[in-house]
Design a protein around this nucleic acid. Structure first.
Length: 378
RNA sequence: ACAUAACGGCGGGGA
């Protein structure tokens, strides 16, 4: 069982759902249902792999789900972006503990639903450092750094995660001076802390400072290297970007996508395509990055071909194609393409409106604007 | 024994 534990955990960490399924299939019939511990491990593994349906299926078959099973199921929905689903499980679970409450507050926080996060938080029977940190994040992701700071300052207890969350809030809000101040006053640091500080300088375009933090970091992981190579690319230093990429001891999908984008950002489509073809695997983000490279660099036909070769599409794909047609001044194809989209979000619609506007078709822009579903006029 | 918060890669407008 402890072996199974380690194996299923590693499937979750590496999102290897096919190995997870093989392990699941190797467990004797009924064990996953009757042995709550084993069932929990499977629910968690499927959740981490993004397979919510199988997580739910294992859970449903469990004879005696315990409080771990229930809170894990809440986490599964929350971490896969289904807040409604998480809330539903939360509402029907027989006994709610602080971990379940914290999970819900954090889910709302990351989705940017500050009001809901606050309502949850206020209804909690008690709070701990995780609850407070989640509320700090809820404020920070909405750009309310002063309120986040108030939460931070008034917390009865802080730990390394709290400090790093505050640092991260400043980092992503462009407040690099405040970020540095937090970093300098932290009682302790770990690799996440160092990476967050690196990201703060990188996002602020302060490449020398970023490089200094990178060099001073006691040890690196994939996040550190990837952040640094992306920072070099964004600063127009493609050679340095490449040298980080070439010297990294390991690479993952995120790394590969970052280096593809680094080349496209610096106008090197051929380099981007070479790397894209050499990638060991591709996900929707990497396909979109390559698609956008073609779109932004004016390769309409290559973009169209790539679009049709993609295994799946997202709103980013639609926007990239519209961008390609807009770049090429081809309003007809943009309009025709747009009419085939059924699931576009507000950004897709805004891009189409901008395309009409830019081509001088105010009627088209207005008509599109008027037919937008669920438009918020505030 | 197993559950919750912090770090890296893709899109429009706005500031």
């Amino acid at each position: 069982r402890s072996k199974l534990h380690a194996l299923l955990k590693s499937c979750g960490d590496s999102k290897d759902v096919s190995l997870g399924m093989r392990l699941h299939a190797g467990i004797p019939q009924g064990v996953a249902a009757e042995d709550t511990f084993v069932g929990n491990l499977l629910v968690q593994m499927y959740g981490k792999c993004g397979d919510v349906a199988n997580a739910q299926r294992v859970f449903d078959a469990m004879v005696m789900p315990n409080v771990f099973s229930w809170t894990m199921l809440v986490t599964v929905y929350a971490q896969n972006g289904d807040i409604e689903g998480a809330k539903h499980v939360f509402d029907v679970m027989p006994r709610r503990n602080i971990v379940a409450w914290n999970t819900m507050v954090a889910a709302y926080a990351h989705a940017g639903h500050l009001v809901e996060a606050r309502i949850m938080f206020e209804r909690m029977p008690s709070w701990d450092v995780v609850s407070w940190t989640a509320m700090l994040i809820a404020n920070a992701v909405n750009g309310f750094l002063d309120q986040a700071r108030e939460v931070f300052d008034s917390m009865p207890e802080k730990n390394l995660v709290t400090w790093t969350a505050m640092l991260s809030g400043y980092a992503h809000n462009g407040q690099v001076v405040d970020a540095k101040q937090v970093f300098d006053s932290m009682p302790e640091r770990n690799l996440v802390t160092w990476n967050t500080m690196l990201q703060a300088f990188a996002e602020a375009g302060q490449i020398d400072q970023a490089n200094a933090v990178f060099k001073a970091t006691p040890a690196w992981n994939l996040s550190s290297w990837t952040c640094m190579l992306a920072a070099f690319a964004q600063a127009g230093l493609l050679e340095e970007c490449r040298s980080v990429f070439d010297s990294m001891p390991e690479r993952d999908l995120v790394t590969w996508t970052a280096v593809v984008q680094g080349h496209s950002d610096n106008g090197d489509v051929e380099g981007a395509k070479c790397l894209f073809d050499a990638m060991p695997g591709r996900d929707i983000v990497s396909w979109n990055a390559m698609l956008l490279a073609y779109a932004q660099l004016g390769h309409v036909e290559l973009a169209a071909a790539l679009f049709h070769a993609m295994p799946e599409w997202s709103s980013v794909s639609w926007v990239s194609m519209l961008e390609a047609f807009r770049q090429g001044g081809d309003l007809d194809r943009a309009r025709c393409f747009f009419s085939t989209i059924y699931t576009g979000d507000v950004i897709v619609w805004t891009t189409m409106i901008a395309t009409y506007t830019q081509m001088g078709s105010f009627h088209g822009a207005k008509a599109t604007f008027d037919s937008m579903p669920g438009r918020q006029d505030d």
